[in-house]
Amino acid sequence: MTMHTNPTPCLRGWIKQHKSAGVARGGRSLTAAEVIAESVRYKAEFARPLLARGEIFNPITGEIVTGCLSLSKALDALRERHGIDTTVRKLIPLLERKGLVERHLAWRMVPMVTDPTARKPEYRHDAIATRAAVGDGLLISIHYGHKEENWVRTLVTLYGLEFLARLLKTPAVTVKKPKARDTVRALLAEGKTQAEIVRSSGMSKQAVSYHARLLATSKSKKSVVAIL
């Protein structure tokens, strides 16, 4: 998926062929106005919509969407409007579990710190919107970069922003694990021995003995206080 505010690579190649053909015939190169006219005609031939700045074409639904935000900008908006405080690093795994993004390995060549004349690969994981996310109008991924570079940025639509607000505002259901001392207290009350508690609870013998001793000490202190 590409934001078509600039000529696509195939369009640039097509225009270059026309310019070469014009020069070969002894004519002049295309002017800027003629390039724009050829671009309009090219997109009209292939039924590609002419997009203004900030407009993105959804290739699955055929819609033109506006007001899209990057993941970081979307989280800034959610923080300001709903008080939701999270990070992109935490959001991407959540979207991945929901089947809305997939992480793809990408790379580009960058200068080395020790020797700027030499270059090395720089790797990163791009979060790509899945077909389901694009079809539902939640996310759209656009490609950008120059020459050999091909980076991807996933944007959140206005509808996707509402979806994220509902998703992140829903409290996660957590099951609290009972404390070890409470577990030992309950099992001792059932009449189990320390050896049986070790086998049934999975705690170590030392831990069970420690908590049982503290419980016995606490019980004896309460008994003394009651007598006094």
Rank of each mutant, 00 (worst) to 15 (best):
L50W: 09
M1F: 00
T117I: 09
R97S: 03
T157E: 13
E63K: 11
V88N: 04
V173R: 14
R103W: 05
V152N: 01
E149N: 12
E38H: 10
R185L: 03
W107H: 02
L30D: 02
H104S: 08
T86Q: 10
Q206K: 04
R97C: 00
L30I: 04
D115W: 10
E55T: 10
V224Y: 10
G99R: 07
V35C: 12
S220F: 08
R41N: 06
I84E: 07
G83T: 07
P49E: 02
A74W: 01
E102D: 09
T87H: 04
L51P: 02
E102F: 08
I197E: 04
R119W: 05
S70N: 12
L188N: 01
W151K: 13
E45M: 11
L161S: 13
E80N: 09
K16P: 04
T87R: 07
G22F: 07
H146Y: 05
E162S: 15
L105R: 08
D182N: 13
V156L: 09
R199Q: 10
A33M: 08
W14L: 13
V198N: 02
K90M: 08
K120W: 00
V110D: 06
R28K: 13
F57Y: 15
K147L: 09
G26L: 06
S39T: 07
N150A: 13
K176N: 10
